[in-house]
Each structure stands twice: as structure tokens, then as C-alpha cells.
Amino acid sequence: MSFMKRSFGFSAKSIVPRDDFPRAQLVDLDRYMRDWYVIAHKPPSITRTAHNSVERYRRGGDRRIDVTFTFRKDGFGGKLKTLRPTGFVVPETGNAVWAMQFIWPIKMQFVIAYVSDDYRHTIVARERLDFVWIMSSEPSIESNDYNRLVERVARIGYNPAHLRVVPQQKTGRS
């Protein structure tokens, strides 16, 4: 634990979820590095009315993930917003737990609760059940796939009624 505090500036205890909290067993970071379209979420207030939400992950170093999150506020023609947090992969978590830093020195828990075998769909959750994201490598997904992902979100402990579907345009990037 002292290694993690010294190397990452956070307490592993505050970032790593309890053992029974769902998380992917092993995340292949190279395959996970891509654009992920937010299909539905239990959103933070800043993205409550977001359209065309896209998370872009790129390797920034051994355990650092450079993130570019873009969305349009209040509709497809709304103002483009861009956030650039940094993710830090927590060692010994199968690359499924990240400490996400939006503002220094605060880091928040980011758990890859699920990623499909083909890396087309993912669920990112938090043990506090305050936020959750259902994401896809494409701007839309089949309704059967979506329903299965919503069921997974419910099994984690979220109320599916609190999910907001994020409108995505099928052509062009945000």
C-alpha cells in the first residue's frame, strides 16, 4: 500500500472497490484504448443534458491513461465541451480499476465493471453507485445488447430507472 501512496498520490483503500464489487477480471489496455460512445449513464451534473458524449482513451505511459471526453451541451447543436482527465491504472487489479483525476490532487474511483469479449461494449461503475456509464465502440447498439447491459447495471446495484440514454448522432464525431 505504501508503494501505491508514494507512486500515485492516493490511497488504494479509497480507490479499490470491495472484493465483491463487480469488475472485469483482466482488461487488455491496448484493446481498451479507443473511442467509447456513451450510450447511457447515471450522469454527473455536468453531463445531465449531454449529447454525442465520447470518451477517448490513449496510453500515456506505463500505467497512465490520457483521456479526452467530449460532449455537446443541451443538444446536437449545443456548445462542444472537452474535459481531459488522467487515469492511473491501479496495480494488481487486472487493469480494471483506475484512479481518475479531473482536478489535482483529487482522484476518483473508476471501475471497469464489464467489458465484452470483443471489446465492443463496456460498463464503468463506482462502488458508491453515484455514477455509471454504458459505452460502446459504435454510436448505437442493438436493443438486445443494450438490455443485457442494463441488466448488468441493475445487478451491480444501480436503479435502471435512473439511467439516461445519451443521444448520439450516427455520422461524424462529437
Rank of each mutant, 00 (worst) to 15 (best):
S11N: 09
S53Q: 13
D19I: 06
R63A: 09
Q25L: 11
Y32R: 09
R59F: 06
S2L: 12
V38F: 01
L29V: 15
A50R: 01
R34P: 07
N52H: 10
K13Q: 11
K42D: 07
D62L: 09
R59Q: 13
T49I: 00
T47D: 04
K5G: 04
M4W: 13
S7I: 10
R23F: 03
A40L: 03
L29S: 05
G9R: 12
A24E: 12
A24W: 07
M33P: 09
F3W: 14
V54A: 03
R59G: 07
F21Q: 00
S53A: 15
H51N: 05
T49M: 02
V38H: 00
I15K: 00
Y37P: 02
S45A: 11
F10G: 00
P44C: 08
S14M: 02
P22N: 05
V27D: 05
R58I: 08
Y57R: 02
H51A: 03
P22C: 11
G9L: 09
Y57Q: 06
Y32M: 06
Y57H: 08
R64E: 08
R23N: 05
A40N: 06
V54K: 06
A24I: 06
D28C: 07
G60W: 02
A50I: 04
A40S: 13
R63E: 09
G9F: 09
H51F: 11
V16H: 03
Y32D: 02
Q25S: 12
R23I: 03
Y37T: 00
T49V: 02
Y37S: 00
P22I: 12
P44L: 11
A50L: 03
P17V: 08
R64C: 06
I39G: 08
G61E: 01
D62E: 14
R56F: 09
W36D: 00
P43I: 00
R23G: 02
S7F: 14
S11G: 11
D28Y: 04
Q25V: 13
S14Q: 04
E55S: 07
Q25R: 13
R34S: 15
S2K: 15
K13L: 10
F8K: 01
L29Y: 06
Y32A: 05
D20F: 14
W36N: 03
D62R: 12
P43G: 05
P17A: 11
S2V: 13
T47N: 03
L29F: 10
Y32T: 06
D28E: 14
V27Q: 03
R64H: 11
Y37M: 01
F21W: 05
V38P: 01
R18Q: 12
R48H: 13
R64I: 12
V16C: 04
V38Q: 03
S11C: 06
H51Y: 13
P44Q: 11
S53V: 15
R31F: 14
S7D: 12
A12C: 10
D28L: 06
G60T: 05
A50D: 01
T47W: 05
V38T: 10
D20L: 13
P43M: 02
E55L: 05
